[in-house]
Design a protein around this nucleic acid. Structure first.
Lengths: 235, 235
DNA sequence: CGCTACATTGACAGCGTTCAAGGTAAGTGG
DNA sequence: CCACTTACCTTGAACGCTGTCAATGTAGCG
């Protein structure tokens, strides 16, 4: 892994651990970072707000600084699939199509860097490392999407939940096996895993009963048997 | 869409319609194409052969010239998920990880161009258009994967089958509504759609009974009610 | 306190899986 | 040419997981 530079202007005051996972800045010179900085603006949004909607023109690329965000697709019949959850350091909107084919909604208060996509891409034409980094970002998104695809195709409800737990544990800043905060509703979880809220509730109950997890409060989760949960989550 | 150049050496004698969909050569100069040509080798393989296995080192990128190919992931519990079918013009192996995390198996006799991945990526560092094209390829792969994800998360068995039909109709060279050839087995279809062979059979029977499709022989399919099938397949 | 949104639980139905049997088609060898 | 093998596909019956519908419980908030 290469050294990571973060330009002054876009470095958060309280740099979050997960932010250092951002690959956009890999291998870039201070001068390049300065230029990159010029097309970035820091923004924030409240819980439940949309960064953009499905079919909006894809003018921006976002980089999550803080908060949890969901990527959603709704088809004309009204069924919703959550394509992924985003955490600090994650990017969304890195697409070559003129319109987004998904919406992005914040589950919590959240902060972002907003890059003008065209400016970013033009800049990438002049900075090989930046282009490489954008490719790397897309590659990671694809890998995650493939994992989720495997889960939806091959796993039972309780296994899908375990997959989510491990995913949160890995990605959510500050998450520990004995304290994972669920920023999403049961409906969000259901739509992420291709289930219904009722099945999510029942599967949670089953996992609790089997002493694999504990749910001290609605939005808090503990993994009691890491080996078993990890095994069930495996892709 | 930009003009497409294909260098002499790697242009197939009988250029297939779908091949012109290959974006790797977009915007490149004849000189660049010549260099690209140097790291390409034409290969072929028989039905059922593997181009590479899961966990193999990712040394090559393949471009399908002819035939139908499947991308598969098998986890340690033995369940198999087909991540996609590939047709002429499609690429596979465009990854930044050192190892493939899926296997690629040919369903028919097939022909490919094989690129050394390192050479290709090194070349891309010198040729901005090539790098852009590789990004575009990955972007398309992601879009397809997201479509499949939506299908697995939200659709019933018979709808999933309709999705496959529309996908084949769109991608398979020579496919027409009244003649779609199924190069894959029922097991392959099941593993692609997250079902069992029995459910595939039964759902096919149901669609036949409802006069939405006809199956004149095991591996031939006709779409009788395009509107209905298309509607059910929609993402 | 009462409203509202969200979550859980129960009953039941249905879809898809599992297990089992039988059918079909292509290839092989007598 | 035909029996035999083999692999693949279809169909049936039973089961069970998940979805649906409905009722109840719970937490947050004005």
């Amino acid at each position: 892994m290469s050294t990571i530079f973060i330009p002054k202007h876009i470095r958060p005051v309280h740099s979050q651990p997960a932010y250092s996972g951002s690959v956009l800045f890999n291998d870039m010179t201070p001068n390049e970072l300065e230029q990159l900085d010029m097309c970035a603006e820091q923004t924030k949004c409240g819980s439940g707000e949309y960064l953009f909607r499905q079919h909006d023109r894809s003018v921006n690329v976002f980089n999550v600084i803080s908060g949890t965000v969901s990527i959603e697709r709704v088809s004309n019949n009204g069924r919703r699939q959550i394509l992924g959850f985003l955490f600090p350091g994650d990017f969304v909107g890195v697409t070559s199509s003129p319109c987004y084919d998904y919406a992005v909604r914040s589950l919590t208060k959240a902060e972002f860097y907003r890059f003008n996509r065209k400016k970013l891409y033009d800049l990438a034409e002049e900075m090989p490392h930046l282009k490489t980094n954008l490719t790397e970002i897309n590659s990671r998104i694809l890998n995650r999407t493939i994992d989720q695809l495997y889960i939806l195709g091959q796993k039972k409800a309780h296994e899908r939940l375990c997959f989510l737990f491990m995913h949160l544990l890995e990605r959510l800043p500050g998450a520990r096996p004995d304290r994972i905060e669920l920023y999403m509703t049961r409906q969000d979880i259901a739509d992420f895993l291709g289930l219904t809220t009722e099945t999510v509730s029942r599967s949670l109950a089953k996992l609790k009963q089997d002493k694999l997890i504990a749910v001290p409060s609605l939005n808090h989760l503990q993994i009691l048997d890491m080996e078993a949960v990890s095994e069930m989550a495996s892709t």
